[in-house]
Amino acid sequence: MSVPRLYLSVNGCLCPRLEPDPAWGDVAKASISVEHGDGHASTRNVHWAPRLITALDSLLMQYGVELVWLTSWNELDATRQLLVPELHGLSGGRMLDVTTPPKNPGQTDGETGLWKSQRIEEDQSVPAPFIWIDDADVQLHGDKVLSATHETPSLLIPPRSEVGLTVDDIARMRTWLEQLPT
């Protein structure tokens, strides 16, 4: 069996819109400045639960899961270059392209995730069991991805964007990974 993949978004998943699931305990915060070039920059104020990052790192290592970043943070490699050092975990990982428009012109709609589902379908041209975590796009485009990858074991998790990934979500991932054929 192929190495399982974790397609992971940042906003609303690792970094919730309000506060992380209280079950994680302490919360860390950072203001991250992203330089876009030509003198343009943006600042993203983020917060996360350090115990969540540790739990994900442990899960990835224990089950040999490949981390695949699938987030708007991939633009300018902000995920690995700016966010990951603040998280003190989830280092490395492969990034799926955020800059190439979707295959079907006219269907690009910014943050609605069509590009994310297409990137998963492209990446699954070499099938591997996968987990897709996204607070909005799993609900919007999860059925499309499942239809395109119907023979591939998969687990789709749409966390509530207000709290991001929960302790229960990590438990679901662990149970699913344990049940994969070896």
Rank of each mutant, 00 (worst) to 15 (best):
M1F: 05
S2P: 12
L6R: 01
Y7D: 00
L8G: 01
V10L: 01
V10K: 00
N11I: 12
N11G: 10
N11S: 11
P16G: 05
E19Q: 06
P20Y: 13
P20K: 01
D21L: 03
D21C: 12
D21E: 06
A23L: 12
W24M: 03
W24T: 00
A28V: 00
K29V: 14
I32C: 03
I32E: 05
I32V: 13
S33K: 08
V34T: 04
E35C: 02
D38C: 03
H40L: 10
H40C: 15
H40V: 11
N45S: 03
N45Y: 03
V46R: 02
H47C: 14
H47I: 00
H47F: 11
A49D: 01
A49Y: 02
A55M: 11
D57P: 13
D57E: 09
D57W: 06
S58C: 14
L59A: 08
L60K: 02
L60V: 06
Q62V: 10
G64H: 15
E66H: 12
E66Q: 05
V68T: 03
V68C: 07
T71G: 01
T71M: 09
S72F: 15
N74Y: 07
N74D: 09
E75F: 09
A78G: 05
T79R: 04
T79Y: 01
R80P: 05
R80E: 04
Q81M: 13
L82P: 03
L82A: 13
L82I: 07
L83F: 00
V84N: 09
P85T: 11
G93I: 03
G93E: 13
R94A: 07
D97P: 02
D97W: 06
V98H: 04
P101L: 10
P101D: 13
K103I: 09
K103Q: 14
K103H: 11
G106S: 02
G106P: 10
Q107L: 15
Q107N: 15
G110M: 15
G110P: 03
G110N: 05
G110T: 10
T112A: 09
G113T: 13
W115N: 07
R119E: 12
R119K: 05
Q124S: 11
S125I: 12
S125W: 10
V126G: 06
P127A: 10
A128V: 13
P129E: 05
P129Q: 08
F130S: 12
F130R: 04
I131D: 00
I131Q: 00
I133H: 13
I133A: 06
D134P: 14
D134G: 15
Q139M: 10
L140G: 08
L140A: 08
D143Q: 14
D143T: 12
K144Q: 12
K144A: 12
V145I: 14
S147G: 06
S147I: 09
H150V: 11
P153W: 11
P153V: 08
S154W: 02
L156E: 07
L156M: 11
I157T: 13
I157G: 03
E162C: 01
V163N: 00
V163E: 01
G164I: 04
L165R: 02
T166Q: 08
V167S: 09
D168Q: 08
A171Y: 09
M173Y: 13
R174K: 10
L177Y: 13
E178S: 08
L180R: 15
L180T: 05
T182Q: 07
T182R: 08
